[in-house]
Write a protein that binds this DNA or RNA. Structure first.
Lengths: 98, 98
DNA sequence: GCATCACTTTCCACAATGGAAAGTTTCGAC
DNA sequence: GTCGAAACTTTCCATTGTGGAAAGTGATGC
């Protein structure tokens, strides 16, 4: 009955990233890095984890002369996030406000 | 600006436990253990983590002849959970439905 | 006193996370 | 074409988190 939490999405940095990606069509690596405030290596590894899970699509394309990495949520990624957030909401549902 | 996620609360098992505790006044160890579906040692360690953070109060009292451990969210625990859920909601806020 | 229940602690293994540093790829300049 | 810099990616390493099994502890019940 309880849709459970997806460990790939639940990790704080990845959760934040997925939520960011869900809100836009595409966003670049550097912008995400600044938002999460992590090193490049760390973001790169999280992106890889999400990509290997099929949740994020990575596209390299030039912008302003330099090559940049563009990230976007895949359809399965969007669905997994939706399901994860639904599970979170279900947990929260029993918690009284205030 | 961004209230951030509390790592003590964010761990899936502890998050679920805190939400359970928030919904009631007191609940016993065994009931939580069944809900989380973890071993006694694991639950015991999570309880300890929450207790040492001051988020959960532990009381031992007899019930039906046997000693049981009763768990409840402390005031700081309730506040930390509230804050954590607020941070989660803030993240979710930008995510479009469907 | 001895078993039993209800946890706690210890022991162990393994996966996750993070940064630094080295490596790779791609441009633009020359 | 090759040199240097930007933008990642990978490797290396240390630390922490998580989980179960098994041994340990304390409070009854007999």
């Amino acid at each position: 009955m309880s849709a459970s939490l997806d460990p790939v999405i639940h990790a704080p940095n990845r959760l934040q990233m997925c939520c960011m990606l869900a809100a836009v069509d595409t966003i670049d690596f550097a912008t995400v890095r600044e938002a999460l405030d992590v090193s490049e290596s760390v973001l790169s590894k999280h992106v890889k984890t999400l990509e290997e899970s099929g949740y994020v699509k990575v596209r390299k394309a030039a912008s302003e002369g330099r090559q940049r990495t563009w990230l976007s949520l895949s359809k399965p990624g969007r669905e997994a996030l939706r399901s994860h957030l639904a599970a979170l909401k279900a947990m929260m549902a029993g918690v009284p406000e205030i």
